[in-house]
Design a binder for these strands. Structure first.
Lengths: 336, 336
DNA sequence: TTGTATGCGTTATCAT
DNA sequence: ATGATAACGCATACAA
């Protein structure tokens, strides 16, 4: 079995207090003591037991990152950056997947793990205001992405309205007039798709264009399959669009494939733009125009906010907006 | 603060033993007792503390999944399936990223977390035999992918040689003769690239074709960028290949883009095939021919092996080979 | 500077 | 069937 403090103490002929001091790098330890203890530690290959330490100190050193699906490029990139930032702060990161149902969102938000196992939780899935109702704000919880800020939780967001506006304005600037948005979630009360629809609508309105409900197409998940299906249906419609704004890059990848499968071209017949700037889009053919979100910034800010709140639970909740930037590429012909 | 067993016991006027029994669903508890205790639990909103439980039982309920980078599609898909399988078994999954250096591989393999914080570790990065030398086999460790099986650790692998052979044979069956492989790692002693090179070489040899060193191209990481660079260099060479076998789908995506950027076509001028079957390849244009690996199976088997070993540390190490299958798609013109 | 002793919240042993 | 109590391994208040 693994050696404990007591074993080391016995071996070195000192008290466990002294051993603990040496391990913790406590100031006032005599050289000779330190050497004796360190030798015993080496001989027994002693390593502090993190679980015991955590029971004693109340800190587990564990963060949870909650995402819908880790294998969606946006979330795996987010995970990469969160793990990077959290590791630098001495935390381990657990990944929990909620899928698309409400149940696991709720259990992760309200379950015992959040309050007793994790020092903090980073919550990335789309969520409704109802999801957060009555959630204990005492335990550190940082919301990522675009929830409606309610002042109780730290929050790192994207300016979705502006991002959608920028994407739409780009299509309009290219002379496109028959625009369609793909990615609305009319059956859910999520802030993100609502805000993106708002940005889309606003840009069209400013250009003096009317928006009909038929121009706002739903997509239950932000997947390639959904983008393909929605776009295929669009092409069959009587008045075919000349530009599509997708609420995610994955939707856009599906849309582009659907357009080519219908014998049309991108951007010739239909221009396509997404949001996220996933790596896939840079190498795709045509390369995907998109709105780039600074995920590294989102992750760093989120971990920083979580750490700050762990150290000071009474801290007032902060809201951070991550920058975004338009990236015109081949799929809109905006730039080769 | 959170209520403890003692609080509940006091409230219900019983001993903590009885409360513990109720919580653990112990057999011999009288109805009246159970009701009384359950009411107290409800009133105080008591939840068992997982950390304390773990200190006592020695089980943490934590698994670690070690990958080079979580945002590589193959690994994020693996993570998804591992988390799914582990959650079903009651485990939480921590993700650790090693990057591409040897240091973090080593620290995760030999560090205190592996022995004292995690009940088990799933280790996916490419690793050398040296990496595993002297690693304590007492703590559950399952190797994923293609290490050389040494009998000490459970191991879920792909038949890399056969997979590479199948991909190469597919290109040959299409009539291609000037084949090149991209993805060798001559500077490292990793089993995976070596085995894939062996399969490639064997298929060519059986077809009576000689293999020159120039046909085996290196790629330090299995990224789109590396695939792009290696392929661009290939196209500039005097004798241009008519088919490229990439050791990963990501390499293949970069290769395809490089070929089109050079004014050539896929599969017309050069056929391309990869390994992994990532989602991106299905929607790409042309869709990517590949060898599909059953990641769900890999994950399930790995978690099962880990659980079995946690329950029975003396268990003999097992080796499992996951199935693979050739998926001809547009990038080899093998099938529309 | 170092030793003694207590408690973190749980499970498990030994009683009764 | 239930109660009292001892660990699990560590950090720390208090004492010396």
């Amino acid at each position: 079995m693994a050696a404990t403090l007591r074993d080391v103490a016995r071996r070195a002929g000192v008290s466990i207090r002294t051993v603990s001091n040496v391990v913790a790098d406590y100031q006032h330890v005599s050289k000779s003591m330190k050497e004796r203890v360190e030798q015993a530690i080496a001989e027994l290959q002693y390593r502090p037991n993190p679980v015991a330490r955590r029971l004693r100190t109340g800190r587990t050193g564990l963060l949870a990152l909650v995402v819908p699906e880790i294998d969606v490029p946006y979330f795996s990139k987010l995970a990469r950056e969160v793990i990077r930032a959290a590791t630098a702060e001495g935390f381990h990161v657990m990944i929990d997947q909620t899928g698309h149902g409400r149940d696991r969102r709720q259990s992760l938000l309200r379950g015992t793990e959040r309050t007793l196992l994790f020092d903090g939780v980073l919550f990335a899935p789309l969520a409704t205001a109802g999801d957060l109702e009555g959630i204990d704000p005492d335990r550190p919880l940082v919301l990522l992405g675009e929830h409606s800020f309610d002042g109780r939780f730290d929050h790192v967001a994207i300016d979705n309205i502006q991002a959608a506006y920028d994407a739409t304005a780009h299509l309009l600037a290219l002379g496109r007039r028959r625009l369609v948005a793909v990615g609305a979630q009319p059956e859910e009360d999520f802030a993100t798709p609502l805000q993106r629809t708002e940005g889309f609508t606003r840009a069209l309105a400013e250009a003096g264009l009317e928006v009909t409900p038929a121009q706002i197409r739903p997509a239950a998940r932000y997947s390639r399959e959904d983008g393909y299906r929605a776009t295929a249906a669009l092409i069959d419609a009587q008045e075919r669009p000349d530009a599509i704004f997708c609420y995610s890059d994955l939707l856009a990848m599906g849309a582009i494939r659907a357009i080519f499968d219908a014998g049309l071209t991108v951007p010739g017949d239909i221009a396509v733009i997404g949001i996220d700037d996933i790596d896939e889009g840079r190498f795709a053919r045509p390369s995907l125009s998109t709105v780039s979100l600074d995920i590294g910034y989102v992750a760093s800010q989120a971990v920083a906010a979580l750490c700050a709140r762990i150290d000071n639970p009474g801290r007032v909740a902060t809201e951070t907006i991550a920058p975004h930037s338009l990236l015109p590429r081949e799929s809109t012909g905006g730039q080769q």
